[in-house]
Amino acid sequence: MPIVSPGFTGRRQSPDVQLPPGQYLAEDFPVLTAGPTPRVTTDRWQFTVNTEAGQRYDWSWQQLIELPAEKITTDIHCVTKWSKLGTRWKGVSLDVLLEDVETAADYALVQSYGGYTTNLPLEDLIDGQAWIAYRYDGEELTPEHGGPARLLVPHLYFWKSAKWVRGIQLLLEDEPGFWESAGYHDYGDPWREQRYQGD
């Protein structure tokens, strides 16, 4: 009786899939967390943009979900080396939220419920590159994955896509966030493998 063996193929990856350097393909969606998972109910959820001049712009949950939303299908790349392809999200573009915000800032410090922060240039949050996402794969975003809403900036390593997002502080000068002040790269482009400071 012939024995059919598929053989050992290691981590399955079709040859036409292009991943950033040093990444492997994940089939699941790993949950990474630097602390207890905040449980933020939508009735007390609020998103705030503070400008460098001290102006404040607020959105309640109801106001957020009434804004025009987009469906986004994108690859995501975690600095711990897993990548996940074709993830499906729904959310509001930062272009919509920042449309009426008057600012001369070049930088943003994104803030989360639970105290997490991450920094990025403001230009990486606009022009169709970033969203406040509140649905994943056709379902409400679970707390483990950052629900009720998280930032989605898929062109940078996924630590920049802050879970449990609650606001953005706009800044004239760059200010490192939670991981950026502890050895991780300030910008974090996966295609240039900018994992750590000095990369």
């Binding site: 105290g115 939670f178 502890a182 991780y184």
Partner: peptide, 25 residues
């Protein structure tokens, strides 16, 4: 908390971060 880009240790009393350790290459 170890399932993270680095190791994060929090106070058992107030849950503030007291130590972060990131291991690079």
């Amino acid at each position: 908390y170890q399932n993270a880009p680095g190791v994060v240790a929090r106070c058992p009393h107030c849950e503030e971060v007291v130590l972060r350790l990131v291991r690079g290459r």
